[in-house]
Design a protein around this nucleic acid. Structure first.
Length: 205
DNA sequence: ATGCATGAGTC
DNA sequence: ACTCATGCATA
């Protein structure tokens, strides 16, 4: 259950990505600074939502979403109906991560205005519940998810602690040692690094 | 809710 | 080859 109704979606098999998160992303333009902070930081960014606001919003968002009896997946697909330029649908995963703040700060800031817009629309038309026509249900290619066993995972974490960015050669060596595909190891390191940058556990915020 | 994966944009 | 936003599949 993905693409709601091949409307704004350009590529038939894939939802539009939010290509590069520019500090001036169109979707993030509507939110300026809503707090009365005395600006005296060296670098001035128009779009600076501090973590408190994001945290508060994410929480209210989830609470109201549930109040409306809407699932994370519902929100994701409903976003396409907002017809916001450059904004298509999102997955349950992303909505979930937004609510739990497990996204990068920049990602949170880019998504906030979009989800805020949806929330307002949803609460406004609370009475007139619209039926979503589920268009396709074809049986497509199933991606398989490799599962790294605990022992291997522990080794990877140990390597990561020593060297978060191993060279290609090093990755190959690790892969062979753990009997894993080199690509699996490479992706694991990428994901591990990305994990460190997620909002909730990031230091300095 | 979260692990592994993809793809666009960069460097 | 990496980062970043994002998602399918699965626990």
């Amino acid at each position: 259950m993905a693409a709601p109704d091949g409307a704004v979606v350009s590529t038939p098999g894939h939802a539009p990505h939010m290509a590069g998160m520019n500090p001036m992303h169109p979707a993030a333009l509507g939110m300026a600074h809503a707090h009365g902070l005395p600006a005296h930081m060296s670098c001035m960014s128009d779009v600076d939502a501090d973590p408190r606001d994001l945290e508060a919003f994410a929480e209210r968002f989830k609470q109201r979403r549930i109040k409306l009896g809407v699932t994370q997946a519902d929100v994701g697909s409903a976003l396409a109906n907002l017809k916001i330029p450059g904004v298509g649908s999102l997955s349950q995963s992303t909505i979930c991560r937004f609510e739990s703040l497990t996204l990068s700060h920049n990602n949170m800031i880019a998504l906030k205005p979009i989800l805020q817009a949806w929330l307002e629309e949803a609460e406004k038309s609370h009475r007139e519940k619209l039926a979503k026509p589920e268009l396709f249900s074809g049986a497509e290619k199933k991606r398989k998810r490799t599962s790294i066993a605990a022992p291997e995972k522990r080794s990877l974490e140990a390597y990561f602690a020593l060297q978060p960015r191993p060279s290609s050669e090093k990755i190959a060596a690790i892969a062979e040692k753990l009997d894993l595909k080199k690509n699996v190891v490479r992706v694991w390191f990428c994901n591990q690094r990305q994990k460190q940058k997620r909002m909730k556990y990031s230091a300095g915020i």
